[in-house]
Design a protein around this nucleic acid. Structure first.
Lengths: 382, 382
DNA sequence: GTGAAAGCGCTAACAG
DNA sequence: CTGTTAGCGCTTTCAC
């Protein structure tokens, strides 16, 4: 059973004060006593009570995450970054889910605060939107960093410029000579998730002087797809969404005349759904339909053909989020100004768009630098 | 800023005792007082301090997870099950990673205990092995449930009989008429991960009277694969392991003479790696090489051909783990006897093994019951 | 119905 | 160098 400091002190015939001093490594302890204490401590397997400690010092050494459902792999990876980095720095992590609604966010933050977290990382799309609810908690008294940009509010954040990424992806097709380019996105059209993608896509088209054809922009959604006779789609909930959307969007877009020759996909998983639809339709990728994904998920190297995609350094983003947060918590950053850390992405060229075409700093996979885990420093490319 | 009970009581001119009574919904409070208090509470946005509460009552309403790195999607899904269920029941969750080594497990459990968790869920392979370290913590005084079976120790657990699953998978090939069947597994041969798979595979062979050919059993490992010239394998760490192993194993096994006609894969991701290797080698699946996966991951429906696989009800397992744990924590289960809950799996027949062949309760996808999210009650099949 | 008081395990300030 | 003490915010017992 687990002893408390008092009991240990008693056993050793010393005071709690002295015990505490050796516990925190204070030099103000007799060498002999210290050794005796340390020995006993080891054999007793003392486990400090953090609740008591937190209560006393007013800090818990734990970080809170206001998180989304973790189904999407990219979120999982971000979380890994957060967890490992926090652990390295001696912090625990506790998650509270939120669906992004105001009530849910409020409940979540309250929950975290009640745990006395020292800071909060916001990972959902939640606070990224109109986010009046954010204001309410801004002065929860705890530092917050968002893993997506919060535009209408002052807040530290680390983000990837998704619009720029999708502009780049679209431009890649354009440089290849494609004129009829589709975009497959899904779910609420007003979510930042699709807004940014659409924006980048349109921007690339505009810059190239290619007229925007709304027929090439496919918004898949459970309700729409449910109405269609779509094989493979039996449950249209989160886990399936990306694949299903890609699958459905591809079927849909191939009905357009003239037919698009390239499809920008919201994610690698979306591209995989698209790939399947193309296969079933007897379309060759990239010859009949070129595909580009987003995420550089591990699997994108193993599809046939392997996916050209944009790398999103998820692990790194999680890592940076806690670093920025800890700078605030531990007082290394006292500036009023918010940190807005843009994480660079890079285009990873494989085969789903046709033969390698290298341009402005993009790396075909063969020459890509060896990656060191997910922590890989991404080659800058903005 | 966040008020404490004392301050609120003062504002209202009542005692902490009374405040507390309305907070916990005790009937021993004057109606008027109660209303007044509740109103004030709402407007003040009171956030209770759980550290103080935990300290006082000796319970924290939080569950600890001794977890593996979360990279594998199936773990992510299990965690989802744990989180959502815990949240529904009013518990928070905190994770501590462990690589499965004794030191790491000890550190992790200690960490959780120091958070005063009310119970622990063990998710890694860690404690599933020789697990002398488990003994050390068995009487940490907290209930523990393992999400894999711990054979040599008394402990509640929920598990899927992996050996039975792999026996079933192998038998499926046998029923199809295959005689030369390979098994692609990886990493430490002594891990329960491969032991169970190998065992099931061999058992099916034995029962069918097919001689076991060690040459058909491929153990991929980073070191082995690193020596080979294996494209796609640039980082052989966890994230890539499944794919890379499947890729490498397929190349390897196709060198065997006579060539196997079917390959049992350690996971769906392994099967996907295998599929890619087969594609590159110009082998048709399933005609030249039949493939079966394990997990029924979402993507297995979107590969070409879609994967026949075994469904592992991850979400459900996480869910059951917390239910069993809470029964213990909340005193509904005081039995000395350990719970050993075997979660049923089912074979999901798609196309990677050839035309549909239905047998003993297996469900071809077309007739599979509509799945309700990951929570789906799996059709019994054991 | 209500208030007062003790104490959960720990830290930190102060006295020796 | 060491021991004593006063709380951190909350729950709970007991007395009114």
């Amino acid at each position: 059973m687990n002893l408390k400091q008092q009991e240990i002190a008693d056993r050793l015939g010393i005071s709690r004060g002295t015990l505490h001093r050796v516990l925190v490594g204070s030099p103000l302890v007799n060498k002999k006593t210290r050794e005796r204490v340390e020995e006993e401590l080891k054999s007793l397997n003392y486990i400090p009570n953090r609740a008591a400690r937190s209560l006393k010092v007013g800090r818990s050494m734990t970080l809170g995450i206001l998180g989304p459902a973790r189904i999407r792999m990219s979120n999982s990876l971000k979380l890994d970054g957060v967890y490992h980095t926090a652990e390295e720095r001696g912090y625990s992590v506790i998650i509270s889910y939120s669906d992004g609604s105001r009530e849910s966010d409020e409940r979540g933050i309250k929950h975290l605060l009640s745990h006395m977290v020292d800071g909060i990382i916001v990972m959902g799309r939640g606070l990224c939107q109109p986010s009046d609810h954010f204001k309410a908690y801004q002065d929860a008294g705890k530092p917050i960093v968002s893993i997506y940009p919060i535009h209408d509010v002052e807040c530290d954040c680390v983000f990837l410029d998704t619009a720029a990424a999708f502009e780049r992806m679209t431009r890649y097709f354009i440089e290849f000579g494609h004129k009829r380019i589709g975009l497959a996105v899904f779910m609420p059209r007003t979510s930042r998730f699709v807004l940014t993608r659409e924006q980048g896509y349109v921007r690339a088209l505009e810059k190239a002087g290619i007229p925007f054809d709304p027929g090439y922009l496919i918004y898949a959604s459970p309700s729409i797809m449910g109405g269609e006779e779509v094989p493979y789609i039996e449950s249209l909930e989160a886990a399936d969404m990306d694949y299903a959307a890609g699958f459905w969007a591809t079927r849909e877009i191939m009905r357009r005349r003239p037919r698009p020759t390239a499809l920008v996909c919201a994610s690698d998983d979306t591209a995989i759904g698209a790939l399947r639809a193309a296969n079933l339709a007897g379309l060759r990728v990239p010859e009949d339909l070129a595909l580009i994904g987003y995420d550089n998920s591990t699997i994108s190297r193993y599809t046939s053909p392997p996916l050209t995609t944009v790398e999103q350094p998820n692990y790194r983003m999680g890592q940076r989020a806690v670093e920025i947060l800890l700078d605030r918590i531990e007082g290394r950053n006292t500036s009023e100004k918010c940190i807005n850390e843009k994480i660079p992405f890079r285009l990873v060229v494989r085969e789903s768009c046709g033969a390698y075409l290298q341009s402005s700093g993009d790396v075909p996979e063969s020459t890509a630098p060896k990656k060191k885990r997910a922590r890989a420093k991404a080659k800058s490319k903005g």
